[in-house]
Amino acid sequence: MFARVALLVLKKDIAIELRSYEIISTTTFFAAACVTIFSFAFTRDDETMAMSAAGIVWIAIAFSGTLALSRTFERERYGETLKALLLAPASRPAIYVGKLLGILCLIFATEILVVPMVALMFQSPLFNRPGMLLGLLVTGTIGYAAVGTLFAAMLVRARTRDVMLPILLYPITIPVIIAGVEGTTALMLSPPDEAMASLWLALLAFFDVVFVTLSLWMFEPLMTE
């Protein structure tokens, strides 16, 4: 039942997105613009700083992720569909998981563009260990999106939501971003420091467990009037 509700919410979000491609096109464009600006900022004497690539990947993901989060819930608010969703006889945590999966799809889609783009523009060895990079990206994105979905959902009713989302989200997710950046940097060394990267990967998995548990636990009391 739980998985069915979550998948139904996910299916609904994907169906709406596929009608207009609104969020996916705007967030990927924004991420690409971010990377382009960084590529100008970090280029000195035609010699690009290859090691800054890790930071740029994660900053682009965090910024465009905020955009995806606020647009997803703005759409729910505009159509007053979030109220309908919450009135449905389904468990709240299942609804949360469904929304989280939707956000994850959007951010992963952005990453598919951003990571190769950064590797190309900064000529950095991001793909030294593709498996571990994938692991870092997946765990990092889950940690970021878990907190983001919770806060974006509860900010739907707040008047100042556009300002409040970054204020709430960034401080809490800094540890996730730090772990992601450090892990990715370790992978770009020659030779890649796999022990270091797997330490950060383990820490990210730990953050995921903590953040997802706390979010599932708090979604219900936070979403009741």
């Binding site: 509860m154 008047r159 409040m164 708090m218």
Partner: peptide
């Protein structure tokens, strides 16, 4: 600055 309902937001 959260406006009404900010108690719950800040509690989270």
């Amino acid at each position: 600055y959260g406006g009404p309902g900010s108690e719950k937001l800040s509690a989270a």
